[in-house]
Amino acid sequence: MGVEQKLGNMGVVTTTLETVVNWSRTNAMWPMLFGLACCAIEMMAAQAADYDMSRFGMELMRASPRQSDLMIVAGRVSKKMGPVLRRLYDQMPEPKWVIAMGDCASCGGVFNNYAIYQGVDEVVPVDVFVAGCPPRPEALIHGVLTLHEKVKVDTFKDFGEKYK
């Protein structure tokens, strides 16, 4: 506010470092190309022409966890898949976020039985839950935007506490 008004139109903007970092994080969030079940098809639909998630800087699905910072758990997680999912999460570099897409990933959905984790939050920490079986692509996009809101208010202090 202050400096720009005093100096006039010199192409200078002042802001906090936190805002810039969070802004850049939200607008180039690379999800991991990782489909489990039915929701993966809707995730693909969200990437495709009709819904086009690249409007939000997410066109690049990375197949390697090392290159991605958002994990969309799209589908049910079985007892056999749980350890694999955890390993993939551990391989992602910080900062990283997780969206549990769909009912199965959020709470087990209709599958309340011996084979399925009742919510992926038993395996990895989840930031945003998206409801629906499967959620429409719009719902997924809404979930992503909700995550953006969350990331935008992140502070360095919290961040430092979290990854001490």
């Binding site: 599958f111 039985n113 084979a115 399925i116």
Partner: peptide, 21 residues
């Protein structure tokens, strides 16, 4: 088996109409 869901077992615990989902 990484997506083994136990659908058969779950269907056996539901009535014929409800198992359809």
């Amino acid at each position: 088996g990484y997506l083994h869901t136990g659908i058969e077992k779950n269907m056996e615990s539901k009535t014929y109409q409800k198992a359809e989902v």
